[in-house]
Every structure is written in structure tokens, then in C-alpha cells.
Amino acid sequence: MENIKTLYSVKKLGLILLLIGPAFALFTTFVVMPVFQGAYYSLFDWKGIGPLNDFVGVKNFVRLFGHEPFRTAIVNNLKVVLFSLLFQLPTAFFFALLIGRQKFPGAIVFRSFYFFPYVLTEIIAGVIWRFIYNPQFGFLTQLSGLIGPEKTEIAMLGNPETAFNAIFVVIFWKYIGFHMILYIAGLQGVPKDLEDAAVIDGASPLEVIWHVIIPSIRNTIMISVFLSVIGSFNVFDIVWAMGQGGPDHSTETLVTYLYNFGYKRFAFGYGSAVAIVIFFLCLVFNVLYQKYIVGDSRS
């Protein structure tokens, strides 16, 4: 009996290793190890090559928080988070309600058009939008010629005050379809009889949405919020393609900051410190999310 048990557990261990081992190895080699190496480098003044002998402790982090563009970057990231939660997700939800339910004519066609920007390569989206925003012949400039008495050159991206708003529009356009699809999926699971019962009870459409639909797709909303926040902290390609964090660092986000002040200046220890901050911010969010949002819904 004892023998069989050992045999069984050896077999089980082998099975576990066989199933989980390869993914574990790949993930550890290419994700976890580089990340930990980066954490270690962040304590040094290091140019990316040569011996790690200039230990500076937390000096990189101190410098980081004293640097104005870094503060701009953090604020910009928080703006993306807020903007996504307050505008992008509700709009996505609105469109999901609009075309994702009952028999909406051409629903599938609409769905695919709304979703298409999501599959588009970021770098290509950046090129297209730079064309649209071009101050000399761009869309807004042409529009001003049609509306106003004469054509005025409008430079959204060239003005530090408006550049980040211009990028918001692109982020909105690019990712709204993804969240809409999540909500459409969630809506399939809303019990129809509950909804009907509410309508018979005389609930207004808004009340139905608030009291029936939203509670039933709570899980979906949570996932959408989670992905949106984590994605907002890590936004890079679009911002990079729209102007590399410029003009004058006004559109810097954490990852573009890492690029501009870490890699570009051969300050690898410093850049690693930025990476650690990003990781830490995501971690804090994750802990709060697990504790307050996921935890809340379980109770």
C-alpha cells in the first residue's frame, strides 16, 4: 500500500512536471529572470555593460521622483486610467447595449467595424493619426476651412497643452472595441426573465440597466476594469508613435520615460528603477483590486 502510494506520487509529480514544467521554464527564463535582474540593476549606477560596481542604493529612485518629466509621466498615466474608466468603458458599455442585444439590424457588421481598430498594429495607427493630425493639411485644419471664414492651421500634437488630449482620442478609438466586445459577451448572460420582470414592474430603461444588467455582468466589468488599468500603466506603442513623449515631455508616460531617460542616455540602472516603479504601481493596484473589488463581489 505504502509502495503504491509512493509510486502514485512519483507518477503524479512526473505528470505535474510534464504539464506545468515547460511553461514554467519558458516563463521563468524570459520573464521572471529579466525582471529580477532589472530590479537588481536598479540599485546601481550602471551603463548597461561592464562590472556592476557602482552601488548607489535607492539614489536612482530619489532622483526619479525629483525629476519633473517623471512626475508628468505618472500624472499622464493616471489621466489615462481615469479617462478610460470614466469615458472609455462607459462608452463601450453604451455601444454594447446599443448593438449587442436583441435583434439589431447589421449587428455583426457594426461589431466588426467597432472592433477593427483593436487588431490594427499600433505603429501603423500612429502613422495614420499623425497624418490626420498634421497641422498643415490635417483633418482639423481642413475642417476649420469648411466651418470658419478661413483655414486655420490646428496643431493638436504640436502644442504641449493639447498633445496628450490628441493621444487620448487615439487610445479611445483603438481600445474601445475590445471593451465593447467584453460587454457584449457579458450581456449574453443576463437572464432575460429578470429583465422582463423589471420592465413589467414599470422600471425605466435606465433602472433596468442599473439594477438588473450591471449587477449581472459584474464579473465582466471587473475584468474590463482590470485590463484597462493595467494596460493604462503600460501604454507605450501608441504614445511613442504619436511623438515619442514630446513635445517637451508633455506626453511622456512611464514607459516612454523609461525609454527616453533610461536606454537613450545609457542610464540603465536608472531605467531599471523606472521599470520597478511601474511594476510596483501595478502590484499595488492588483492587491487593492483583489482585496476590495474581487473580495467585495464574493461576499
Partner: peptide, 27 residues
């Protein structure tokens, strides 16, 4: 082990690019 994998969700490729390059070179 599951949490170990999930931790990776918090870390995008972009921020680990240089150590990753070093790793690829080693291999």
C-alpha cells in the same frame, strides 16, 4: 504556482527589454 504565473500579467515586455536582450544573447 498559479499566482507565480499571474504575476507576469503585471509586467509588460517593454520594461524588461534590456535584461531580456542579455538573456537572449546568453542563449
Amino acid at each position: 504556482v498559479f499566482n507565480y504565473f499571474i504575476m507576469g500579467l503585471l509586467f509588460p515586455l517593454t520594461v524588461a527589454v534590456l535584461p531580456l536582450m542579455l538573456q537572449l544573447r546568453t542563449l
